[in-house]
Design a protein around this nucleic acid. Sequence first.
DNA 1: CCGATATTTCGATGAATATAGAAATATGAG
DNA 2: CTCATATTTCTATATTCATCGAAATATCGG
Lengths: 114, 114
Amino acid sequence: MDSQSTIRALAALAQEHRLAAFRLLVQAGPEGMAAGAIADALEVPASSMSFHLAQLAHAGLVSQQRRSRSIIYAADYAVMNALMAYLTENCCGGASCASDAACSPIQSAERNVA
Amino acid sequence: MDSQSTIRALAALAQEHRLAAFRLLVQAGPEGMAAGAIADALEVPASSMSFHLAQLAHAGLVSQQRRSRSIIYAADYAVMNALMAYLTENCCGGASCASDAACSPIQSAERNVA
DNA sequence: CCGATATTTCGATGAATATAGAAATATGAG
DNA sequence: CTCATATTTCTATATTCATCGAAATATCGG
């Protein structure tokens, strides 16, 4: 994952309706959801939702697949995991930051925000 | 972590110079770096970098601390981990998506992008 | 083919964001 | 107190983004 595609993915998620749509798809699982169902659930006009779904797809965060008259969207977890990996890459310059329990992407977020 | 703070964090990272600065701080570790050093490393004017660092700080992704004439910035890993947790929350509706090896935030990104 | 359904593309408008020089603020040294 | 250093705030401009109705495209049933 390079800088440009990372920015595209982050920008895609940094918007109210797109973040909501993505989370909805994450919860929907591999089955996915039709574009119309997503628009209905989030109470966003179809044309607006289409605009946002296109950006999520362009960023690779969701896949689209036509099924009859509907287009089914589904979350792609791999891209999001790649995102996280890119952000924490070469953490602490490779030094032993495990002592601080800071670099591990697995730990829960309990540290104080200074 | 709620929707608004998540969007703020994602938007903060979705910009070339801010993403580069954050990654630089992640690699710098707990020691952090002075604002001027970051601006020099990324070849961005000081006033522009200050604008970007303020946004990262407002999103909680970095902390700032004055040390003599310098202001030292350091990455806060907890917020980023909280970010990832929020995105994958209630994945697959809680069903057994482990069979698909899709929901785990730990796995490496090797699945095909459909 | 024709009508109904599902979704996308187009187009215009208003809002938010990035940029960088100049001026202002804060700290330390002599 | 004064000068030098480090960073931020101010200000203006150019670019990008979100919105949503209307029209266009694609698919299915009869």
